[in-house]
Write a protein that binds this DNA or RNA. Structure first.
Lengths: 351, 351
DNA sequence: ATCCTCGATTCATACGTATCAATTCGCGTA
DNA sequence: TACGCGAATTGATACGTATGAATCGAGGAT
């Protein structure tokens, strides 16, 4: 934290001297809406002095007075910042950026905090305070951090759903329940009687939502709890031929997969099944409860897409509401996903 | 500029009270390097109080004291902010972001200023001051803005070269001269005797550099000034068959093109030439003095690439030098480009 | 002439921090 | 005992702004 160098910038005091008024009057001219009237002639002289000296208000001083500074922070819990276009999070960033610009806010990327890898309450805390409020993003998020932030009353919006006991927080999240239920009902209508949900081990609330959708859909379609199987995967390495063929032998005819960022689990499942002679969808229907691997010439995965850009925009809108609305309560927004009709599920084939 | 709401955060005064010391001591503990010694026992008590109350230093107050805030601004002069991956500027942003993170700086994107479309000295000025210094980027930049910023002593680094009379400013720029000269020499070695440089109308210094390279290369290869022709284009629309065939009839056998962001001029040239029955490179050699259109199955444009990510990194390094070095003079850095050996130039064919 | 009103302006203060100058205290030396 | 010295701590101040309270005139109205 070195000292700043270079020539000092003009202040309101200097403007005041040049215009022959007091500093307070300069401030009044700058923030015209305060109700106190300023004579037209004085206003002109002050404006002129501002022009002459090239004055610009000092954001630090303003912030110290407790004013907002029109800056929205963006914090991600992943180690690599998602400016990279290949990153799963990039569309969110696009939405956040676009909406911030539209609403006249600058965007502060907390890149420094992420190098420390220690969460908001290590390096990041000072950083967060540089912004009026913050959009938080990322799967591997610390619940404690979120709870603390909420308790402190720091304005933020989380992208994704997190329920914290004893604290209500603002988020914008996709609706995983409804499309999952719809997909399960569709599978039952296609003749599937035993359906497997493959969850991510770290799925948290998003995983819970898929499981809830599975049960709702299964119940609506007349399946019993025994017909709905839930297993976990922590990545590609725990999907092998034995496991997949085991499912089939146990009567599973359809697998619905909770995607991870890189979709390693889903890709592995497809490869292992294919290698074991199980064709998709003839022998095994597979669908992704979220973003699927990219389509190829022959394969379009049945799935649904998260409206990521729109969610980014919505998060900023919620945050600005929090910032500009007088003591606004926490806001939640659930947005619908978009069905992707693929060719990876089909009518069940009895052997 | 609304007033902030919500619960107040703890201050150094409250820490001091809880630890039974003065505010000054708390500040000393926080910034240990000031030479004043603090007893180990006191330090411990203060640290404990900080822990207990969840204290974090107020960046605004610190900034007001004239401290830096570890934030680098990024300002682009184009209207659309280059977070979009399709944008020409995206690689620069990647480099800036990565290096800022590495050096422990946060990155402030001036999105709000760009919506106003009026340059640094309209909306943008207040915004710039939120950061310790700024990286500036963009082709359609206002010289006046740059000159004023330099005069005011605001720390910034421009990506791209701009010479401003009476002011020395910091920039990182690609070396267009050397590779252009080399390319011209190569063309002469291939038998070309009359070479055309097609400049962008708004090319400014980058265009000047290409022209300088053309003359240097031509001279080194023994061509006279008459053998080197310079014309201007403002986009695809002023490239038509008449113009291109006119060149050929005037003895031009090779065209070197200053690229624009979208390379519209170069693309148009290729299409028009092809349509007029001029095959590239057999009838006309074409090279890009910078980034070329993307390669296809049959065509790799002879060109050279600007190391954009590296330039972004370098710009941040220069800026941090300015910020952390005591009254550092302006710094300039010229980086080499990377040759792309294509198939769009060839030995001249005498008819 | 006195009082009140009201528009225009100024005074004074607080925001939270870093740092210089001043103070206190313990201790060894003259 | 007096004195000096260095380590540890504190008092006081300034950074630039916004704003509530106070001041000041100039007109009316009474």
């Amino acid at each position: 934290m070195r000292k700043r160098v270079g020539p000092r910038r003009p202040t309101q005091v200097e403007i005041a001297q040049r215009a022959g008024v007091s500093q307070a009057t300069v401030s009044l001219v700058l923030n015209e809406r305060t109700g106190a009237p300023v004579a037209e002639e004085t206003r002109r002289r002050v404006q002129q002095a501002i022009e002459d000296l090239g004055y610009a208000v000092n954001p630090a001083a303003r912030a110290l007075r407790g004013m907002t500074v029109k800056t929205i922070g963006l914090y991600t819990f992943e180690s690599v910042f998602p400016v990279d276009q290949r990153d799963f999070y990039h569309p969110f960033l696009l939405g956040v950026e676009a909406e911030a610009a539209r609403l006249g806010y600058d965007l502060l990327l907390f890149t420094s905090a992420n190098t420390a890898q220690r969460g908001v309450y290590a390096m990041g805390r000072n950083a967060l305070l540089k912004a009026d409020g913050c959009v938080l993003l990322g799967r591997h998020i610390s619940r404690d951090d979120l709870a603390n932030l909420a308790k402190e009353g720091f304005p933020f919006v989380f992208i994704g759903r997190r329920d914290i006991a004893g604290a209500e927080l603002s988020y914008v999240a996709p609706d995983y329940v409804a499309p999952t239920a719809a997909l399960v009902e569709e599978l039952v209508a296609l003749g599937h009687q035993r359906i497997l949900l493959l969850r991510q081990t770290d799925g948290a609330e998003p995983g819970d939502d898929r499981e809830l959708g599975l049960r709702q859909g299964g119940q609506a379609a007349g399946l019993t709890a025994d017909d709905l199987v839930v297993e976990f995967s922590s990545g590609a390495e725990d999907i092998d031929a034995d496991r997949v063929t085991g499912w089939v032998q146990a009567g599973i005819t359809a697998v619905v997969v909770e995607p991870s960022e890189d979709n390693a689990t889903g890709v592995a499942l497809a490869e292992v099944a294919e290698a074991a002679g199980l064709r998709i969808p003839d022998h095994l229907s597979v669908a992704f409860l979220g973003s699927a691997p990219p389509p190829t010439a022959t394969r379009i995965w049945t799935s649904f897409e998260i409206p990521r850009v729109e969610m980014g925009r919505a998060a900023v809108q919620l945050l600005v509401n929090l910032l500009e609305g007088a003591d606004q309560p926490p806001l939640q927004l659930v947005v619908p996903c978009i069905d992707v009709r693929g060719n990876s599920i089909s009518r069940v084939v009895r052997r």
